[in-house]
Computed example of a mutant assay.
Amino acid sequence: MGLVILLVVGGLIGWVASIIMRTDGQQGIFLNVVVGIVGALLAGFLLTPLVGGAPITSGVISLPSILVSLLGAVVLLGIVNLFRRGSVR
Rank of each mutant, 00 (worst) to 15 (best):
V35E: 08
G14D: 04
G78F: 06
A73T: 08
V38E: 14
F30C: 06
I20D: 00
L7Q: 02
L82Q: 15
S87W: 11
V88A: 05
G28A: 12
L3D: 07
G28Y: 09
I13K: 00
G59R: 02
G25T: 09
L3I: 03
G25H: 15
S69D: 07
F30T: 12
A43F: 02
I20Q: 00
V74G: 01
F45V: 07
Q26Y: 11
I13E: 00
L82H: 05
I56S: 10
G72A: 05
V8L: 12
V51H: 12
I20F: 02
L46N: 07
I61D: 05
S69F: 03
G59T: 04
G39S: 12
S62A: 11
A54I: 15
V75F: 12
L77Y: 08
V9W: 01
L50D: 12
S62R: 07
P55L: 02
L50R: 13
I13R: 00
L47V: 11
L12F: 10
G52V: 13
G36C: 06
R89Y: 12
I5F: 04
V75S: 04
I79W: 11
I61F: 14
T57L: 10
S65M: 03
V68P: 12
A54L: 11
Q27A: 07
D24R: 10
V8F: 06
V4F: 15
G52M: 15
N81H: 08
G36Q: 09
P55Y: 04
D24P: 00
A40M: 06
L50E: 09
L77M: 14
I61T: 07
G78V: 06
P64F: 01
L77K: 09
G86R: 09
S58G: 13
T57R: 09
G44S: 13
L41Y: 14
G78I: 13
W15M: 09
T57S: 10
V60D: 11
G59S: 10
A73Y: 05
A43V: 03
I13T: 03
I5L: 07
G53H: 05
N81T: 04
G39R: 06
R85P: 00
L46Q: 15
L3A: 14
I19A: 14
R89K: 15
V51M: 10
G52H: 11
L42Y: 08
I29Q: 09
L3V: 05
I56E: 15
I19T: 09
L6G: 04
I37P: 14
G53M: 02
V75Q: 11
G72L: 03
L70H: 03
A54F: 14
V68F: 07
L71P: 05
S65Q: 07
Q27S: 15
V38S: 13
V16G: 00
V8E: 01
V38F: 10
A40Q: 12
I29E: 06
V16A: 01
G52N: 13
G14Y: 03
I19D: 11
V60N: 14
V80D: 13
L50A: 10
M1W: 02
